[in-house]
Design a protein around this nucleic acid. Sequence first.
DNA 1: CATATATAGTTGCGTTCGCAACCGTTTCCG
DNA 2: CGGAAACGGTTGCGAACGCAACTATATATG
Lengths: 162, 162
Amino acid sequence: MEAKRPDPQPQDAPPLQLGDFVPFRLNRLAAEVSEHLAEIYRARFGLDIPEWRVMATVGPDRGCTAQHIARSTRMHKTRVSRAIAHLEKRGLMTRVTNSADRREMELRLTRAGRRVYAELVPLALERETMLLACMTREQLRAFTAGLDCLETFLGLRKDSAD
Amino acid sequence: MEAKRPDPQPQDAPPLQLGDFVPFRLNRLAAEVSEHLAEIYRARFGLDIPEWRVMATVGPDRGCTAQHIARSTRMHKTRVSRAIAHLEKRGLMTRVTNSADRREMELRLTRAGRRVYAELVPLALERETMLLACMTREQLRAFTAGLDCLETFLGLRKDSAD
DNA sequence: CATATATAGTTGCGTTCGCAACCGTTTCCG
DNA sequence: CGGAAACGGTTGCGAACGCAACTATATATG
């Protein structure tokens, strides 16, 4: 149960408890969860978070562009660019110039990349399941509904569609 | 509404949609919210996120140690140390060696620091309120209950007490 | 009392990151 | 057509970060 924060703060002694401040809580939680997952990516496959996100976004089948990855993951395009460069150097991705628009590169996983992907995804999903198992099914539904709400409000879900 | 993810994945074509993967969603959401807030801290007061967290944790009244800040915010101690050094240089904090244990430093906001704090906290809380206003009261309660749950599961709430 | 271990905090160093500037390509428009 | 603006992607560079090593103090142990 959450202790209520005394809401009308008298301007003079503002009662901010960082531990009750939702933006901070989201940051701390996200960092903690990421840290656990990153450990798996790194230890088992030598991938860091940007690299994993690139692979997860490209996926096993379709190709896509760096721009698309940057938008849908909200990573800075330089971060995406460097991750892709590294993945290509490791032989996990290919990068071919789109002949219709020679500015774009069509990104795909190589066979080796798809192998890593196929191994990694179940581990990630399992970790997610373990994490979310601390909630009841109904609690989880409400929680993800809240996430949906915030994401929509902040315009974070638009790009997943394109 | 959340589209259900087809849950039994056939090992061969794993259907990971990064946009539905909760750890990723938490990261993206936290980054987006932080970015908005950081803009306020920076533009209005020249503070970055670690500095703001330090000030918010120390608070207007009590003093505390760098160690306490590191633990309760889960920031790396070097990050805390550098933030404190910068805040002291700017005259927003004081740092006095605890005579009982000369390893510790008792941290306090200066008068100027308290002024910044008193101005900043209402802005931060207002931003939080605006953000959370996209949910109904009931939705919000369920969402923060979910946060509580995850934080407890990950051991993130223990340290706030000490 | 002496040595070993733990803790609070700082610093040097290599890595990662984001910003801005840049290159090459495409599109827009006079 | 031709110059300007827009866009996809890369790179140089300075700032921020985490790790490991360090200083200094405190505590535990024989």
